[in-house]
Simulated assay, not measured.
Amino acid sequence: MKKLKLVLFLSVLGVGVTAAVIYSGIVNVAADEPHSDLVYWLLEATRENSITKAAENIKVPDLTDPELLLSGGVDYEFMCASCHLKPGQRKSDMSLGLYPTPPNLAVSNDSHEGHEHGDDRQADRNNFWVIKHGIKASGMPAWGKTHDDQRIWAMVAFIKRLPSLTPEQYQILTAIE
């Protein structure tokens, strides 16, 4: 009986503290002020694990088709580059103003280098899922509402090649005919 009372007390206390935090306005939601290290870690870990879990059964098509690279390049230029940047670009008004800061997709991600083929395919699945479904409260829209899967896979194919492109190659691949 004492354990039940303790659990009930802790539950009521937890609800009370949560309500106090929500209604007091003490949590700073400004995009120009970073989260505490603990909150940042919790959000980052939750996001990464959620995406990996949601994307684990997505079938990755052949992303080496040059047509995918070309069509994905045009979409990247118009839909992604202002936040995720271009080769040779270090920042933009959008990349500086968003929090969390969007990843610079034009530079190599060392955390994925040297991984086995399966991990590379998981990165492709994760990228597809993020582009299709977006990420809540991050500025990343859900492009799946307006773009079919083929078009999203084209963006994934382009993003995969993006870190190896020079600014000149990027300009050629993203030019509209």
Rank of each mutant, 00 (worst) to 15 (best):
S164T: 15
L105Q: 06
Q122A: 09
N126M: 15
C80N: 07
V15I: 11
G73M: 02
N49Q: 13
M94S: 03
L98R: 00
N126K: 08
R161I: 00
D75Y: 15
L13V: 13
S111Y: 11
L162H: 02
D75F: 11
A123L: 13
W41V: 04
V156T: 06
F9G: 00
I51A: 03
V29Q: 06
A20E: 11
G118C: 11
D110W: 01
S24I: 06
H133C: 00
T166V: 02
F128D: 07
P103M: 02
M155V: 08
K5E: 11
L63Y: 13
V21N: 06
R161P: 00
D65S: 07
P66Y: 15
I159V: 15
K86Y: 08
A81Y: 05
P66H: 13
S164C: 12
V27Y: 07
V27Q: 01
K2H: 12
W41F: 13
I176C: 09
V74D: 09
V29M: 06
L38Y: 14
N28E: 08
A55V: 05
L42W: 02
K160L: 00
I26Y: 06
V17Y: 05
H84M: 00
R151K: 08
W143D: 02
G73D: 01
N127I: 08
K145T: 15
S11N: 13
S164F: 08
L69K: 15
K3S: 09
K132I: 00
G144C: 01
I131F: 11
A20V: 09
P61L: 07
A31Y: 08
V156R: 08
E67L: 13
D93L: 08
L13E: 12
S36D: 05
D75L: 14
V27G: 00
L6N: 09
N57K: 12
S164Q: 14
A19Y: 10
I58V: 08
A142F: 15
P163N: 09
M79A: 09
V39Y: 10
F158E: 07
N126E: 05
W153H: 00
I176R: 10
A106P: 05
M140Y: 11
N57P: 04
T46S: 07
A81I: 04
A19F: 02
N57S: 11
L4E: 15
V156E: 01
L10H: 10
E67M: 11
S11L: 10
A55N: 00
K3Q: 14
C80A: 12
Q171D: 12
S50Y: 12
A142P: 14
I176K: 14
D148I: 05
S138W: 14
G16I: 07
W41K: 11
W41I: 07
K2I: 03
A106I: 00
R121Q: 08
E116V: 15
W129D: 05
D124K: 05
A19W: 07
R125H: 08
H115T: 15
E113Q: 15
P167M: 13
A142R: 11
K160C: 03
R90E: 14
Y99N: 01
P34Y: 04
S50M: 03
